[in-house]
Design a binder for these strands. Structure first.
Lengths: 208, 208
DNA sequence: AATTCCAGAGAACAGTTGTTAACTGCATGG
DNA sequence: CCATGCAGTTAACAACTGTTCTCTGGAATT
């Protein structure tokens, strides 16, 4: 199955990745809809026309970036929500995991937050799709929990989307505090934890 | 106090508003950071240089749009959250108010959702400021409620921001269903109501 | 009635953009 | 070893961008 790539294909993949990296860096201070194809190739040090060997358009590159930013995140989401330990520790761990992820991949997080409602339709669509998948996965994880025994499937999905949106809000908040003081980051952490906790409390009393 | 404007000033305001309107329309299918000054003046039917009589830059126009989109919304937010009637009806009414607002001003809502995390720093800042004000106003309204008698100020603000974010998420969801079937809109309405309800339940049991 | 002011027009500027076509050199498969 | 494939180059295109300076007509002020 594992097919060893030739010199040619590896070089092509390398250039492709360089384009993605350069685009992601340029997108820290602008939106995808204003990102120029020449701007990207210039940053990589490659001729403008080389772009077409890898992507049909900037929108196409954007969709690839969505895949890169969210595609590998599914296992992490699953393990974050699941687990049978007590809910308080789980929340602390989840918020910390989000904070770490923002630290590790700030540009990816910024890209998703920015382009989720951005001006490029295919990219919005790709993000919407991935987030819907997250929602379903979180719902499946929640369904395993004994606490959700009598819940309807609709309600589980409703709660799952609430969690997913809350994660995004938290991530975006951490993003804004990337260059703030540790005290500010701590404050944001505590607010996020309490918001999660309030949702959890609502969840516990949903069937009352 | 009410100073009657001369022919000259009214004409200037008219052109300014035409620029804002044209920009808002053009922003339905792109982001602010890719909006061109010439593009806007062309849409209005005015010379490119006339733009400078009204705005220093596109970013400056964006900040004005934030004011137009959110500035007049404060009284509505206050009345939505306040009121002593039972919480279930309040939620129904709040979600309906959001739906109506999205119907009436879709371009404004889209602009805010898009540029909140968009590529233009001064505009992000302006939106952040307005949303922070909303948060404080909602907190003040929540503080009046007898249910929040023993709540700390921190917790009230935490809840207020949760509500504000939830309103934005709901508005953005309605935006996506603007051209969908009535059934789809009804479905979104019910999900939004249940999410609000879950948060309200969490609120009721917060001090347990 | 004469003067000042100023919103908008017009022309020109140096740069930028996406896309095309035809090319080159080198890894690949026969 | 030779022929093919294909990643990346080069050059050129028409169209577009923000910004400058200069000008004009008519409202506002005196």
């Amino acid at each position: 199955m594992s097919h060893i790539l030739g010199v040619r294909q590896t070089q092509k993949l390398k250039t492709r990745q360089a384009l993605l990296d350069a685009a992601l860096r340029l997108l820290e201070e602008q939106s995808l809809s204003s990102l120029g194809l020449r701007e990207v190739t210039r940053a990589v040090g490659v001729a403008p026309t080389a772009f077409y060997r890898h992507f049909r358009s900037i929108a196409d590159l954007g969709v690839a970036l969505v895949e890169e930013a969210l595609g590998s995140l599914h296992p992490m989401i699953r393990t974050t929500v699941s687990g049978a330990d007590d809910s308080s520790r789980r929340i602390t761990r989840a918020v910390e995991l989000i904070a770490r992820h923002v630290d590790a991949y700030p540009a990816h997080v910024r890209f998703i937050a920015r382009e989720r409602h951005g001006g490029v339709q295919p990219v919005r669509e790709a993000i919407r799709e991935q987030l819907a998948r997250f929602g379903q996965e979180v719902r499946d994880e929640l369904a395993k929990d004994t606490e959700a025994a009598d819940w309807g499937d609709d309600d589980l999905l409703m709660l799952a989307h609430l969690y997913v949106d809350q994660m995004l809000i938290t991530a975006s908040l951490f993003l804004e505090t990337l260059e703030s003081s540790p005290e500010e980051r701590e404050r944001v952490t505590r607010v996020a934890e309490r918001q999660m906790r309030l949702i959890s409390i609502g969840r516990q009393h949903w069937l009352d």
